[in-house]
Amino acid sequence: MHTDARSLSRRRLLASVAAVPILAATADFFSASGRSISGQVPWSPFAGAPPRPVNPLGWYFFTPGEAAAVEAIVDRLIPADHLTPGGKDCGCAVFIDRQLAGSFGQANSLYTKAPFAVGLPIQGYQGDLTPAGRYRLGLRALADYTHGAYKKDFVQLSPAEQDAVLNGLDTGKIVLKLKPGFSTREFFELVLQNTMEGFFADPLYGGNRGMASWKMLGFPGARYDYRDHIDKHNVRYPRDPVSIYGEA
């Protein structure tokens, strides 16, 4: 048995070595060949890959009902106070909508085929739903729950009732009708995580309108020269933040 395994691996090795030049020739294995530049660094006028800000209007993924629910949720997760406007006015729901409509929503960078084993908590979601699918399922289940408990949509609840529902989702006191492998708490964590991302990400992506969170923190954003301030310790940086698009 040992001998078999060894001879098999040797055969495999030989086969794979033989495959390399074939791969190279057929599949453009080395197509990313180097470019040599001499003399001067190349330059051309109007060069650049400008960032493209998201369109702030309308909904790309959410239905009107879903959008209203998510706006209400983000406004409770980040309530308006003396530090910043609320999550809705900061554009967190728009941020989440654009992300779900894009490659994040489709889980383009993840392996999403079977088998769908139940993983450890540290491994994150292991099921067959994309993030977009999880939002769709979760928001429908949330609407079902609030209609069962309050005969209302989430957005129609009082702030105190909304807080109670969100608290229930977070602590496990409320269990939504989701799918095996996708717990209510996971749904809550997903929304909370994306809300924070929308609150702190560059305004380019639809959230953090007016760079509200950066102003609150004193984070200077996409500035890149601090020579005038590098030696001023324990002094708040005096300048307003700058976004990737250059707003200030």
């Binding site: 001067q40 660094v41 330059w43 006028p45 109007f46 060069a47 650049g48 400008p50 698009y245 250059g246």
Partner: peptide, 26 residues
């Protein structure tokens, strides 16, 4: 400012620094 520019590169000052285009930004 709009199109950017490429500075002179000479034997005594070989870097030839470039100015990026700001046409998209402003």
């Amino acid at each position: 400012v709009l199109a950017g520019a490429k500075g002179a590169a000479t034997v005594k000052s070989p870097t030839g620094p470039a100015m990026p285009s700001f046409a998209w930004r402003w």
